[in-house]
Design a protein around this nucleic acid. Structure first.
Lengths: 134, 134
DNA sequence: AGAAAAATAAAAATAATTATCAATTTTATT
DNA sequence: AATAAAATTGATAATTATTTTTATTTTTCT
């Protein structure tokens, strides 16, 4: 008989933590989020499980922001906005991504399976702060 | 009188190394590329100058591939393809990026200045290799 | 319950990047 | 060309994010 997956409490909690926020969290964030409820949680476990989820396609990597990899529990095709000032990540809905992927695959002879679109600039909140100061 | 920039031999060589390749190199790559011609070149100098160029907008970051930041000396708007197997990065020309940026800025109240589109999958060369093996 | 397999904690190890600082190179001035 | 001032560098240490290791614990199977 084949093994079940996801049969650890902590593994479940890690996945739920990623799915339960719009913050596109880092491993560190997940760790600190769960530490109160799971006092013996280890940071290595968070990293190990996030890597597993990512390679299983259960979660997705948004890329590296300020040196830390950020994750997204929503796997439906969408883009992201990253604030260069505070590093916050925002979901951007829409966009004809699968079309573009097959177009690129054909034109360049590659096999483009995913297409990550990342907008960068200043988020609304940081824009307000800049106005007040400068 | 104001200071000139770029008045170091090594700094110039670093910029030329990035501009002179389509490989979208990492700091390490640039270092090994220049080491023969500049035997006393230090890796820290490469990192320091790449960071400077990047913040000056003279070069651009393609993002992190296998834990290493990759750079592009071409700053004209274009997208990239990253091979998940070998980590090679390919330029993808075209795409209505500035339009999309202002659209996103308006819709989400942010200030999207750049839009990085990264395709991921398997490159032509790695596809061939897979065919031979599997 | 008890054995086998998988997952974990804690700590050490790695790898990429950044900071430090004395020495060198470059530029400006004489 | 000599010199002073400023910027840049090499070498090394320090950080930081992430991965690996191993003994122990948890989970599943019987």
């Amino acid at each position: 008989m084949e093994r079940r997956q996801n049969y650890s409490r902590k593994r479940e909690a890690i996945l739920n933590a990623v799915r339960g926020t719009k913050l596109h969290p880092s491993a560190e964030w997940v760790y600190h989020e769960l530490k109160p409820s799971y006092p013996d949680l280890s940071l290595g476990t968070v990293y190990r499980n996030l890597a597993q989820f990512k390679s299983d396609g259960v979660i997705v990597s948004v890329g590296t922001v300020n040196g830390q990899e950020r994750f997204d529990g929503a796997t439906n095709p969408h883009s992201h906005f990253v604030c260069d000032k505070c590093g916050s990540v925002l979901d951007i809905e829409g966009g004809p991504r699968t079309d573009v992927c097959s177009e690129v695959s054909r034109r360049y002879g590659v096999s483009a399976e995913r297409c990550d679109i990342v907008f960068r600039g200043t988020c609304a909140s940081c824009r307000k702060k800049s106005e007040k100061v400068g």
